[in-house]
Amino acid sequence: MLRNPQLNAKGELQHLLSVEGLPRELLVQILDTAESFAGVTERDIKKVPLLRGKSVFNLFFEGSTRTRTTFEIAAKRLSADVINLNVAVSSTSKGESLLDTVANLSAMQADIFVVRHGSSGAPYLIARHVKPHEHVINAGDGRHAHPTQGLLDLFTIRHYKKDFSRLTVAVVGDVLHSRVARSLIHGLTTLGAPEVRVIGPQTLIPAGAAALGVRVCHSMKEGLKDADVVVMLRLQNERMSGTLLPSAQEFNKHYGLTADKLALAKADAIVMHPGPMNRGVEIDSNVADGPHSVILPQVTFGIAVRMAVMSMVAGGG
């Protein structure tokens, strides 16, 4: 009953729901496949016919222009037909249930559902109810997971650092609410990164975080020391002042990435951010635009990673 629901009986990727539970070989295979697509995205004719005739439904129960767009571009480069549904403002607002929405779209011959939902675990519910030839890709569910973001972060780190076995990675900010952090942490521990740190005030670090295989630090001084990779998390506007934090300014002072603080990390450290950034809150502009930043390459790699995932779940046979 507790078989990993994202793998089929042969251990291949049936859905992509979470980075957690993906075996190391499969993770490496996804990254290698993405590597091969990275070349495609640089060609003049940026299309391969792997998903020709297949339909990809972008099912976003929660708004996100950027993630939806990168999935759309990735699907089109694989020659799939893409249908964008902004369900946040259509059927569900009329009272239709999540499973009814999916059943209706399924009747329109979908092959891949790219799902974003505000509730943790929603893509699991959908994956349990779709037909065997339909695939679900989680594009972010609640605080739980954002596996394609985690994978593109891993891809970026591998691109610049080659090897995970000696890396110190620091993940900074609102870990409590971050699906990006969870997905990246699972990937890093699976690929053997020896030291993953999370840095933030106690109010933004979830209970039992150490069980994820990370070291919890409450100061940048401790957490950034000799880091090879610094991943800044987005701080949502509504969490900048209230019971979790007193103000954006105070957060910036203690946990915002400035050039001074970055100097604590290794000289060749890279700086990442899943976007969209709050300049002057979690990251200063001179760092975001500086020589250590790989924030824009992350976006480019994201397309190759999403092509890899879609081709692996639906491209066979």
Partner: peptide, 13 residues
Amino acid sequence: HDGEVATRLGLAG
């Protein structure tokens, strides 16, 4: 329950 499982699953504890 606010603990390791909720943290892993991203559920409010």
